[in-house]
Design a protein around this nucleic acid. Sequence first.
DNA 1: AATGAATGAGTGTTCATTCAT
DNA 2: AATGAATGAACACTCATTCAT
Lengths: 202, 202, 202, 202
Amino acid sequence: MTDAPAPPSRIERKRAQRVAELERAAARLFAQRGYDRTNFEDVAAELDLRGPSLYHYFSSKEDLLRRCLQSSSEEVLGRLRAIVDASGPPSAVLRSLFREQVLIEVRDFPEFAPLFLTMPVSVPEIRAIVLEVRRAHAAIFEEVAERVVDAPGPETMRVRMSVVFGALAYIPEWYDPAGRLAPDALADEMADTLLALFTARG
Amino acid sequence: MTDAPAPPSRIERKRAQRVAELERAAARLFAQRGYDRTNFEDVAAELDLRGPSLYHYFSSKEDLLRRCLQSSSEEVLGRLRAIVDASGPPSAVLRSLFREQVLIEVRDFPEFAPLFLTMPVSVPEIRAIVLEVRRAHAAIFEEVAERVVDAPGPETMRVRMSVVFGALAYIPEWYDPAGRLAPDALADEMADTLLALFTARG
Amino acid sequence: MTDAPAPPSRIERKRAQRVAELERAAARLFAQRGYDRTNFEDVAAELDLRGPSLYHYFSSKEDLLRRCLQSSSEEVLGRLRAIVDASGPPSAVLRSLFREQVLIEVRDFPEFAPLFLTMPVSVPEIRAIVLEVRRAHAAIFEEVAERVVDAPGPETMRVRMSVVFGALAYIPEWYDPAGRLAPDALADEMADTLLALFTARG
Amino acid sequence: MTDAPAPPSRIERKRAQRVAELERAAARLFAQRGYDRTNFEDVAAELDLRGPSLYHYFSSKEDLLRRCLQSSSEEVLGRLRAIVDASGPPSAVLRSLFREQVLIEVRDFPEFAPLFLTMPVSVPEIRAIVLEVRRAHAAIFEEVAERVVDAPGPETMRVRMSVVFGALAYIPEWYDPAGRLAPDALADEMADTLLALFTARG
DNA sequence: AATGAATGAGTGTTCATTCAT
DNA sequence: AATGAATGAACACTCATTCAT
């Protein structure tokens, strides 16, 4: 009864690509300057457009941010869940999660990661979205972490997880991809360091 | 050359107190809403004043933020340096630093800590101040940390320090002072966890 | 000198019909929301078109309104003049005019009547058109009315005519075609009431 | 327990006067151009101010209109009710109401009357206010009119009242205060004409 | 004929800042 | 010291209009 999902026409593909470009540009500016200090004119200028043109693709500034968050979170959470689904000893899975998260932040989605990690969002409705994504993100790590460690107290566990998330969130603030530490090396080093929080003798 | 420091008159003391109150109120709002979403009218309202009255105490909004940062950073860095100056084995000093930092964040300066840690500052000049304070803050920890650990590579050290700072910066984002974990307990737990990064067998 | 009026081709007829549909849709929205709050996108949507498509039929928004006014005023004025042209005692003609005007407003052209009567037009050029139509419209009634009444002073006449036009213009504001009073009954009642202004003993 | 109503200070009186001036200026423009075509800049310019300055007195454009409606409707309805309260034969009271209404429109509140009578309001919330005032306004006339006339059918009554309100609402559209007909003369003429709708032999 | 894309002009609104009182 | 008044700058958003396809 429902229409078969029509293959995207050439015009739809072009539009989708434009939206993706705009989201990337917007995410970069949002992360750099914060949501409030980022205006439509500047986002549009990144693609040689004028501000009001963005309204052909996004219904409002809030909508623009929402879509940045949504499309990137889907991708990121998908990748992390794929790792969890692959079998293996829990500690190996956890280490892979750490590595993947680092690579996501510094190599694959450097524009989007700060949106969830550090960008302050004053609009309450969007703040809720960010928190929800963070919760889903945290749940992935916590589920695996609990299978690695032999049950410390719940508060101890919470503190250790906070160290993990704090450390991961902090990466974009200090890591310089042009520096001596390659993304892969950072991923390994960080993964080992964080894994030790759960496997080392306390 | 300079005037002898005259003892502060009663009026001057009153003014200094007012400034301190305003700084605290402003810091609270800055941390809650971000710098851009915080306006003079609302800061002034916290002390039953109107917006323009703040110009008797601060020359601009930027100046207000700068002074919030300055007065709190002086206090915080002073307390941390005092711990370093007290003698003791490096690992004990490092642990005390961690504890102190946690207590500063959650018990003694909950209003000010987010200013350095998470508040996004788009004004470049102030961003520089924040970065400078962070650098001084980090230096205190790094100096001690280097005496604790038996020289891993510099990149390893950098990653570990980033875990420390990330974890410490993340605390205000998740810690609920009204929850089961008392500030002192959090301080101990966090101190132990972070110290293990440097003392545990790698 | 002019081209012989070629018979309208099928395409031309289709186009004329489309124009008429668009005018009716536009008139409805203009009357409902006012000229300023009515946009091309919404007018076009009534015929499952997009905004810019209207430029195939109208050269501007102002032109659209102008044509709404023109085509409806031609029809309306034509019908009223036809009544005047039919012979009969002046009071009977005047009564018929009142009836016809009421039926035009509530039954035959409910979309267009408010355009002349109540829609505010801020665009000066169009305001002039509306006023011109109103003048032609008024002239029809005044010519007959003057033959009915035995010459009261010109100011008295003017006041009475203003009552007539005011009352007629007010109808779309209060009359509910779905209510107890059928269009024909309203037309009779209103015609009698207005006619009494000119025939009753003063 | 409650504070005695403090006498308005000099500064409060000045502000109230300013608000009244702004309301009058705004009403004039709203009536002339309609709500949508009237912008803050132009309203402010009437008092040699700039647009944003109006936000010291009105919280929004909608608020400005709302206050125009409120303050004028209070005054107008008060004056009409005072006439009803004064004793006298119903037909004399009704005639006085008609006179007063005419004088309100053309002499005392020429700026405000069109707001209720002819200005189209697209903002639904304000439309409701206008309708509510119109209802209260109509109720005053209807109550007296019903005591004048010896019970025609309800529909006849409704039509006659619609003629009254239509005629009264139409006045600002055609009456020229600089013309031959003085406000008082118009008031008398109109009052007699409208009264005849209820007293003349049908 | 129809429209997706784009834009310039215009507008309501916020707010840091100035100044006279 | 405090503030009411005022404003310029900035910005989100709307919309009629143009144009290439």
